[in-house]
Amino acid sequence: MDVKDIIKPENLVYERTKNLTDKALSYCPGCGHGVVHRLTMEVLEELQITQDTIGVASVGCSVLAYEFMNIDMTQAPHGRATAAATGIKRCWPDKYVFTYQGDGDLAAIGTAETIHSCNRGENFTVIFINNGIYGMTGGQMAPTTLPGMKSSTTPYGREVELMGNPIKMTELVAQLPGTYYVTRQSVHTPANVRKAKKAIRIAFENQKLNKGLSFVEIVSNCNSGWKMTPVDSNIWMEENMFPFYPLGDIKVNGELVTK
């Protein structure tokens, strides 16, 4: 049998979404960013809303997200993505708007914008990649860095007495009346990838309801910043990140999920 005999529409089991460009990802091999890009772009295609979607890239490793996402996108200053998204969504209430932000961007320099966009109930989607570190600038401590965790600015581990506590932004925004859907997911196993995709899909579908902000945290690895192999970083994430940042829905349909 020739290859040509196999490449037929009826044999197609998987196709890359047209919402991703041909450009090779600039992310380190093993990094979760690429998977989340793919899931987000697949969701837009499946919901058939690409032509009505405007994305906001932030500052961090994903600053060039617009190079890989084949959709209309703007690029906001460090921390200000949700403010830019507010400007877009308020002017275009019928468009689907989302931000794609790291933990430094969303939970440190952009804390005020994050909290107030959530609290105002801006009707867009936030995709929040929490890798516990500043990936792009070379692995410095992030607001999400775990106690004892090493980074280039906490070479002996984060000392909480000196450097403060890590912040659980997702639990925090879930308390605000303006958030409608708040969830924490991961993309380190096929099962988690499927769950994360479902969450991202809900977060976009919610925009039709006009009931507030949908917030999807993805606990992700930064194998380069953590100075681990991709596989080790995933194990480390399971053993250290998940106990502190437990996966699952925190708020659904505007109601806190009681555990």
């Binding site: 830019a84 877009i88 308020r90």
Partner: peptide
């Protein structure tokens, strides 16, 4: 936030 809302809308 205000100037970045302007930035988004202007985009």
């Amino acid at each position: 936030a205000a100037i970045n809302m302007v930035y988004g809308a202007a985009s």
